[in-house]
Structures are given as C-alpha cells and as structure tokens.
C-alpha cells in the first residue's frame, strides 16, 4: 500500500483536531484580542465531564456530551465574569490578561487532577474494535470521521452565527473596535461573556472528541492549545477561516515532515513553520 494517501488522511485528521481548537480560540481572540491560555483547559474539562457523567454515573452518552460541552462553556463564561472582565474594566493590557490566563490554566489543571487523579483515561467504550473505513486508499476510524464532520459543521455554524445573526454583527463590531461598539449601544461585556461561553464550549467539544479518539489527561489542554495557537497565527489570528486553513496546513506539514525527518522533531517542525510564517507573512494567510 502506498504511504501518501494515508499521510494525507492523517494530516486531515490532525488538521481537524487543531481546527476545532483554533476555531474556538480565534473566536474568542477576535472579540478580546488576547491569547487566552486557559482555552486549552476547557478541552480537558469537557473530556472529564463526559468521563464522569457517562462512565462513572452511567448517563446516556449523548446527554453526557451535551453536559460536557455546556460545562466547559460555563467555566469559560465564569473565567470571563470573574477574571477577564474585571481586568478589562481596569484597562489591563493583553499581556496582563495572558499572564492571568496562565494562572487560570495552572489552577484549573490541578483541580482536575485532584478530582480525577492525573492518570490517562479513555472515554470510548469500544477499544480497538472501532469500525474502519477505507477512503482514498487509506484507513480511517469512525470517530475520526465524526471529528472531521463535526469540524466542518462547526465552521459552518460559526460562519452563520457571525455573518447572519444580530449577535454575530455585534461580535464583529466589537472585533473591529470595542469602544465604537460601546458607543453605538452594544453591551460589549455581555456579548463578550457569550463569546467566551461559545468559544469554551467549542474547546470542550474538541476535548471530548479527542477523548473518544485517544484519551484524556488533565494536562491535555496545553499541547492542544499550542497547536491551536500555531494554526491561528499562520492562518491569521482572529480570522475564522484562517484558523481552519492554518490548522490543515499545520497538519500536513507535520505529518509530511516526519515522513522524511524522524518523529522526535515533530514539535520543532511545527514551531519552525510558525517562525517561517512570522518572518514572511506575520499576519497569516488570511489577514492583510
């Protein structure tokens, strides 16, 4: 069997996961203009919530997923309400918000570890017995197919939300200039709160899907987040399409990179791509 079709598939799978994180991250960045490092932890919260509701309490799986997504959203909303919003009111700079989010990340991660221990857990019931599909001469599992579909759906959903609804209009106004948005009568703080809810819920969903595909651990967020940030920057930070484009580019470069270079250089490859972009196209693919 030829390796290239499988590598293409692998790149698409990896790209979809990065895209899920990048979508939520970019959505929040667009409105708030700061690097929210706590975004990754929302993925862990979603994953662990499903683990708890479905595996420990034995609730219906779909119900557990909905609860997990909601919980991640609520925690994200809470972070905004109690940390980021007061900081914004004090006119804190992006860097201050970034450091505060680092604190939130550290603390939340440890809380998860206290509640669930830090051992790696799986949330899929059928280990190794998943349905396999042959696509374009490569193999893909059912979960991975779902991940790709969900990514596409979410992208469509977010685009609809941003460009076809009143709420989206408000978000875009804030994105362009928060002060002006305030002057024309938009309750920016309320809108940003909702943005945090949606963005964090998306991260939670990403965490749940990763949990089904591989598994969950309290520190899973940071690795996911870094990939999401790289994807956002090379695609164009704050740009919904850019994040997705960057995610797939990153997926392809990583997977084709380790085809020729040994696997231990994977992270270095990802960050080299980032630096190349920062040098030659610092605003990313989509932004001018």
């Amino acid at each position: 069997m030829e390796i290239v079709p499988q590598l293409i598939l692998n790149s698409i799978i990896a790209g979809s996961i990065y895209a899920l994180i990048a979508l939520g991250f970019n959505f929040v960045y667009g409105a708030t203009k700061f690097f929210n490092l706590a975004h990754g932890v929302m993925a862990a919260i979603g994953g662990y919530a499903v683990f708890y509701f479905a595996k420990t309490l034995g609730l219906n799986l779909y119900f557990a997923v909905i609860l997990g997504v909601a919980l991640a959203g609520i925690v994200g909303y809470g972070l905004d309400k109690f940390i980021y919003l007061p900081l914004r009111k004090r006119k804190a700079s992006n860097m201050v918000l970034l450091v505060a989010s680092l604190g939130a990340m550290t603390a939340l991660q440890a809380v998860i570890a206290i509640l669930f221990t830090s051992r790696f857990k799986t949330i899929s019931q059928n280990i190794g017995t998943q349905k396999l599909f042959e696509v374009l001469g490569g193999v893909i599992t059912q979960t991975q197919l779902i991940i790709i579909l969900v990514t596409a759906l979410i992208l469509a959903g977010l685009v609809f939300l941003l460009y076809k609804t009143l709420f989206g209009k408000a978000v875009r106004a804030i994105s362009d200039d928060e002060e002006v948005a305030q002057i024309v009568g938009i309750n920016t703080n309320k809108i940003i709160g909702y943005v945090f809810f949606i963005g964090s819920a998306l991260a939670g969903l990403a965490g749940i899907l990763v949990g089904f595909d591989t598994g969950i651990e309290p520190t899973m967020g940071l690795g996911l987040l870094l990939k999401g940030v790289i994807a956002s920057v090379i695609g164009g930070v704050g740009n919904i399409y850019g994040g997705v484009l960057g995610a797939f580019l990153l997926g392809f470069v990583e997977n084709f990179g380790i085809w020729k270079i040994s696997g231990e250089w994977k992270d270095a490859i990802a960050f080299t791509l980032l630096i190349v972009f920062l040098i030659f196209r610092p605003r990313g693919i989509m932004n001018k």
Partner: peptide, 20 residues
C-alpha cells in the same frame, strides 16, 4: 525504528512509515 517524544498522542504517520 520510529522515535517519538514523550506526550505524543498522534502516532498515525510514524505507523504509516513503519507499515511497509
């Protein structure tokens, strides 16, 4: 002989490399 870093969770491409 496929090497990967600790913490890696996506082995699909090194598996593809080893497959043949």
């Amino acid at each position: 002989d496929q090497v990967f870093n600790v913490g890696e969770k996506d082995f699909r491409s090194i598996i593809s490399k080893a497959k043949n």
